[in-house]
Computed example of a mutant assay.
Amino acid sequence: MRIRLRTLVPATILFAVAACAPAPSPPAASPATHSPRTSVPAAALDSPTAPDAAPAGAQPRLASDPVQLADDLIADELAIRAPSTPEPALVAAARRQQVAYRAIGRHPEWDGIIGPKIPAALVQAYDRNVDARRQLAAMAHPRDTLPAWSITAPAPGDELLRYYHEAEAVTGVGWNYLAAINLIETRFGSIVGLSTAGADGPMQFLPSTFAAYGDGGDIRSPRDSIMAAGRYLAANNFAADPDHAIYRYNHAEQYVAGVKDYAAVLAADPASFAGFYRWDVYYVTKDGDVVLPIGYFENAPIPVGEYLASHPQ
C-alpha cells in the first residue's frame, strides 16, 4: 500500500466547511451542491496492549498488508478506550487510527478483508468511521494552494466536553452531535480562519447567523460558538428531525451522514472522544494530503509546492 501523504508535524481533521448559511429544505433524493473548505465497549477494553509512541514530529506508518493494518487498528482502538494508556501512546494510537481510516476509506476493496477481523465490540465504531471518511471525502476538492489559516492547539478536552453537555442541557441537542460538528468543522477549534463563504470560529458560523444565535457572545469562543450551534440546531427542529437540522447547518447530504456517523460512535462509547480529540489537521491537495501542524500560519493562500519545499518532511 502506498499513501500519498506529505507531512510536517502534528495537528487534525477531515474537513473545514462553510456552515450555518440559510438554505431551503433538503431535497428528497439528490444531495445539494456544496463547496467545502478542505483539505472526515467490552471488558477487553480495560487492558489492551498500548502501542509505542512515535517520536516527536514523526508521522504514523501503516502496514502495507490490510490484514496487519486491521490488527494494528484494533490495537489502537483498544488503547484509545483504555483509561490506563499514557498520553504519548494515546497520541500515537489516535494518529495511526486517523491515518488508517483515511486509507481504508480510499480502498473499498479492503472491506472484505478488514471487516471480518474487527471484533464485535468495535464493529459499529469501525463501520461508522469508515462511512464518515467516505462521505466527507466525497465532498473534497483537492486544491493547489494551502489555506490562509492558523493551526493552534484546541481547548482542553474536558473543557469542550463540559460545553457540549451544557449546550445539550440548555437546547436539547445531543452533546455527541455538537462534538461531531466541532470535529468536522475545525478539529475542535484547531483551525483558526475563514471558510470560502466567510464562516468563522470553532463551529464555523457566518457572522450574520452567529449574530442571531450567539446571544451576544464571541464567535471565536469555544463555549459561545458551541452554545450558538445548539441554539441553531434546536431552532431548526433538531428534536423532531435531526437530519433536517444538520442539513441546515451545512447543505450537503454527505455532511449530514458524516455528522451522524461520528455522533453515533461518541454516543456508543464516549471514550472514543479521546482519539478524535488527538487527530491531526489534514488538507487535501493536488499533491496529496498535507498535514498542517500546530504552529502553521499563513495570512494568504500559499502554493502547495512552495510550502512543501520550505517545510521538508
Rank of each mutant, 00 (worst) to 15 (best):
Q98L: 07
P88S: 10
R2Q: 11
V173F: 04
D280A: 07
E306Q: 15
P10S: 11
T33E: 12
G198E: 07
R248L: 12
Q124F: 06
Y126Q: 02
K286E: 14
P147E: 06
L122S: 03
V290S: 11
P242L: 04
T285C: 03
P116R: 01
A239H: 14
N236K: 08
T12D: 09
V17A: 12
S64F: 06
V40I: 12
C20I: 08
S221N: 12
T49E: 15
P27A: 14
T7H: 14
A268K: 12
Y232P: 03
R4V: 08
G201D: 03
S310M: 13
F15A: 10
L8G: 04
A229K: 00
R6F: 06
R162N: 08
D243E: 14
A148R: 13
Y164V: 01
K286F: 05
G230Y: 00
A16L: 14
V265H: 04
T145E: 10
L161E: 09
L45A: 15
A153F: 04
R133P: 00
A309V: 07
Y247E: 00
R231V: 11
E168H: 13
A240W: 06
T33C: 05
A18D: 11
C20F: 15
G174W: 01
V304P: 02
T33V: 10
W175I: 07
D52P: 00
F273R: 07
A58E: 14
A197P: 13
S47W: 05
Y277L: 04
A268H: 10
I219M: 13
A148W: 15
Q135L: 15
Y163L: 02
P66F: 11
L122R: 10
P301R: 09
G193R: 05
D243S: 07
L62Y: 04
G115Y: 00
A44Y: 07
Y262F: 10
A148Q: 08
S208Q: 10
I181E: 10
D111E: 09
D215C: 01
T196D: 08
Q135R: 13
Y255G: 00
A264G: 08
R220H: 15
V99Q: 15
K117G: 00
H165Q: 14
S64H: 11
V9P: 01
T85S: 10
H251F: 04
P31H: 09
A234F: 09
I114N: 06
L178S: 02
A229D: 01
Y255R: 03
S190D: 03
T285R: 01
E306M: 10
V291H: 00
A197T: 05
P51T: 04
N237C: 01
L136H: 02
G115P: 03
A50P: 01
A167P: 05
Y247P: 04
G258H: 06
G305M: 06
S272K: 05
D158I: 12
D65F: 08
P10M: 03
R128G: 03
L160K: 13
A79Q: 06
I302P: 00
R133Y: 02
A82E: 01
R6I: 09
L90R: 01
A155P: 04
Y177L: 06
P27V: 03
Q313C: 08
P242M: 07
A199S: 12
P60V: 13
R4C: 09
A23V: 13
R37A: 12
I219T: 05
F188H: 09
R133T: 15
W175Y: 14
A268E: 15
V173E: 03
V290N: 09
P303T: 02
I13L: 12
P31F: 05
A240Y: 04
